[in-house]
C-alpha cells in the first residue's frame, strides 16, 4: 500500500553491529511503518536493545543500512535509567525536558499513564513501575512519530503490564505513530502487535504473534513449554487497575477501592 500513513518510518537493511571481537547482531532486516506495532522478543543477550538503538541512531551499524524518514521524531524509553540522586528532579521537571512546556499537557499525559499522583515528587522516590509510566508519558509528550520502548513493563506488575500495553495501543490508534517494542517477557505479547520478530543475534522468525508462536525456530529457541505460555491477551476486563491500587469500572467509569469489588477472581 502506498498510503501516506503507511510509509516506512525506519527501515533497517542487513544490519550488523560488531563490538569487542564479535557480532552482537548480524543480518537484521527490520521495518516499522506509521501506525504499526512491531515487537522484538528474544532471550537475554540476543541483541534486542542493540537492534533498537541502531534503529534510532544511537548505535552506528558496522554493516548494512539504516534508513529513517527525514526529521523523524523519536520518543525513546531506554531499558535501564538511573537518575543520579545528586540531581534534584521532580516528575514535572522531567516531563518538561520531554519538550512539552504546557502544564495542562503534562498533567493530561501523566493522567493518561496513571501517575498523576506523583507529579510533584522527586523521581528518585518513585517505584519501578511508576518511573516506567513517567518515562512513557515523557516520551509521548513530544508527539513522536515513532515510539521506541525497551522493555517498558519491567518492574510493572501483571495487571499493570496489560494496562500499559493497552495504553500503548491506544496511543498508536490516536496518534498513528509507529511503535517498536522490545520484550523478553514471552508471557505477554500484545495481541495488537502487528509483527513479532524473534531475535537471537539474527532474526529467527517473524510474523504475526500467532504465526511466530507456532514457528519451529521459535520453539527451538524458547522451548515448547515456554512457547505454550506465549499468551496472547485479547480478553477484556470489566475494570482496570489504577497505579495507586484503585479500580475503574469500564461500564460507568466509576472509581472505587480495590477491596470494594469482590468478584474479580471469578472472571
Amino acid at each position: 500500500m502506498l498510503l501516506a500513513e503507511n510509509k516506512n518510518l525506519i527501515d533497517l537493511q542487513n544490519i550488523g553491529v560488531f563490538r569487542a571481537g564479535r557480532w552482537l547482531v548480524r543480518g537484521i532486516d527490520l521495518c516499522v511503518r506509521s501506525g504499526e506495532i512491531v515487537t522484538i522478543i528474544g532471550p537475554n543477550g540476543s541483541g534486542k536493545s542493540t537492534t533498537a538503538k541502531t534503529a534510532i541512531g544511537v548505535i552506528k551499524p558496522d554493516e548494512g543500512q539504516v534508513m529513517r524518514t527525514d526529521g523523524l521524531k523519536v520518543g525513546y524509553v531506554p531499558q535501564k535509567l538511573a537518575v543520579s540522586a545528586a540531581m534534584p528532579l521532580t516528575v514535572r521537571r522531567l516531563m518538561k525536558l520531554g519538550g512539552g512546556q504546557r502544564r495542562a499537557e503534562i498533567d493530561a499525559m501523566l493522567a493518561m499513564t496513571g501517575v498523576s499522583h506523583v507529579s510533584d515528587q522527586q523521581v528518585h522516590f518513585l517505584s519501578g513501575g511508576e518511573f516506567q509510566r513517567v518515562l512513557l508519558a515523557r516520551a509521548m509528550l513530544g508527539k513522536p512519530q515513532l515510539l521506541v520502548l525497551d522493555e517498558p513493563v519491567v518492574g510493572v506488575d501483571f495487571a499493570g503490564s496489560l494496562e500499559l500495553y493497552q495504553l500503548i495501543t491506544k496511543v498508536r490508534d490516536e496518534t498513528g505513530c509507529g511503535v517498536l517494542l522490545i520484550s523478553h517477557d514471552l508471557h505477554v505479547v500484545m495481541a495488537q502487535t502487528d509483527t513479532v520478530i524473534c531475535l537471537n543475534s539474527h532474526v529467527c522468525c517473524r510474523g504475526t504473534p500467532e504465526l511466530v508462536a507456532e514457528n519451529p525456530e521459535y520453539l527451538k529457541l524458547f522451548g515448547k513449554t515456554a512457547a505454550q505460555d506465549l499468551a496472547i491477551y485479547t480478553h477484556h476486563h470489566d475494570h482496570t487497575h489504577l497505579a495507586d491500587g484503585r479500580v475503574v469500572h469500564s461500564h460507568d467509569g466509576s472509581v472505587c477501592q480495590h477491596d470494594d469489588h469482590g468478584n474479580e477472581k471469578g472472571k
Binding site: 541512531g57 523519536v74 540531581m87
Partner: peptide, 10 residues
C-alpha cells in the same frame, strides 16, 4: 546527563 541514549535518540 539523565540519559545519553534518550538525548541521542531525540
Amino acid at each position: 546527563t539523565i540519559s545519553e541514549d534518550i538525548a541521542e535518540a531525540e
